[in-house]
Design a protein around this nucleic acid. Structure first.
Lengths: 232, 232
DNA sequence: AAATATGACTTTACGGTGTTTAATTAAATG
DNA sequence: CATTTAATTAAACACCGTAAAGTCATATTT
């Protein structure tokens, strides 16, 4: 690891930090090569040494953000485990963190889940695995629940549409029991609901309707998990 | 209504149509004053006669789009009624249309529910009433269901968080019975879930996970309405 | 140690964007 | 017909991403 390489990585990190600051201060509209160059006191083309294009820089931000999001969820779960929380309480803790992180880092969240930068298209080969990490935090808990019997799989598996069931089966490891289909399906059912509430809150469509988005969210996840058969 | 005024309105409409075409062809990145000017064979500043700014033009597109969305939902419901569909089937028909419209007019949908144009902020006084129209199609059906007894209100009303309940109560007409709180709350519970599925599908986060987003959506809404106590 | 190559930059430039200003033309009104 | 008003244009400003070419210090190779 040469001196020059270390310097270069430090600068790349600095560029990303300035990008995050501009993003949170002025939204994605403030995120430009030239604005970053001004802040870091370089000429705009100098940034091309570190990122091949603005799109590349944004992709780097997106990947980092997905990972930071997943880290936050994992931390939330670990904290819950340290406090001897039940699996259900772990699930609730992670669900709540899923929202608070989104609110706290709203502009970064919009970067990954909104459609913010016109002309930019995220390369799926890099973002799809990153998305999966966040889902896996939820899935891990739910699979634990199936193992302990807390989450009953009864006959819901049969009712899953066959196309969906086949797809889930294909993503399941070979040695995993069929009963794991249930938590996988349930994961997406829950995820889409959580995600809808958060999206609408962040884009300001929910507050006017419901008044207190936080209480609504908490109530909905408790109701959702109750209907899944958990004792909340 | 003078000749000039008629011409002016026709031109404004033409501008919006070109804007929609550019939007669906190239996404929000292709939506620029200068691009529209090229298409309509005007110089860019000429467009400022019709819209005070690009933001104003976008706001006009957004309002139109919200209304078109609501129109489509109302048409879906009316068609269902004409076919003697039950209230439950009306609700399902509208729910399905909520998705197909979003997919069909994805770029317009992103305009209203995503965060597409950096620097643009929708004026709430103009968009909030427009959002409400779409919700009212769902709400209308659910209120009918309460009136006919199809939708039981049992004790869910009591469990609604007090802050949310107060807010819903405030938006309820004075002469409406308290039992209407239940469908109002349920509306938002359903809406957030539908919205989450559609958002994730449109932003390409769901297909990789679930395979067949359409079947998933149908299965989820049926399950949701079953859990609400409806006979689907 | 000298020569070469590489990486980090700067200057300049091109073509794109939204928007303002002032001047011009066309249409409607008195 | 004269005057007001609306519609349009040309020119310019301040941004934007990025390509090309050149400069200079640092690494690497001979």
């Amino acid at each position: 690891m040469s001196r020059r390489k270390r310097y270069s990585e430090r600068t790349a990190k600095e560029i990303k930090q300035i990008a995050y600051r501009l993003l949170s201060e002025k939204g994605s509209a403030g995120l430009s090569i030239r604005a970053i160059a001004r802040e870091i006191e370089m000429t705009p083309p100098a940034l091309y040494t570190y990122f091949a294009s603005l799109d590349d820089l944004i992709t780097a931000l997106i990947v980092d953000t997905f990972n930071a999001y997943a880290d936050a969820l994992e931390t939330a779960r670990n904290t819950a485990i340290e406090n001897n929380a039940s699996l259900t309480d772990q699930l609730i803790a992670v669900s709540l963190r899923y929202r608070t992180w989104a609110i706290e880092y709203a502009e970064r969240w919009k970067l990954i889940y909104g459609n913010p930068i016109p002309g930019y298209h995220a390369p799926p080969e890099v973002t799809v695995p990153a998305v999966r990490r966040t889902g896996n935090v939820f899935l891990g808990i739910m699979i634990n629940m199936v193992d302990t019997g807390e989450l009953s799989t009864f006959n819901t598996v049969e009712s899953i549409p066959s196309t969906v069931r086949k797809h889930l089966q294909a993503t399941l490891p070979d040695d995993a029991p069929d009963t794991y289909l249930y938590p996988m399906y349930e994961l997406y059912s829950c995820w889409t609901h959580l995600h809808g509430m958060i999206t609408l809150e962040i884009f300001n469509h929910l507050q006017g309707a419901i008044g207190d988005a936080e209480s609504f969210y908490l109530h909905e996840i408790k109701r959702m998990y109750t209907e899944m058969g958990l004792k909340v």
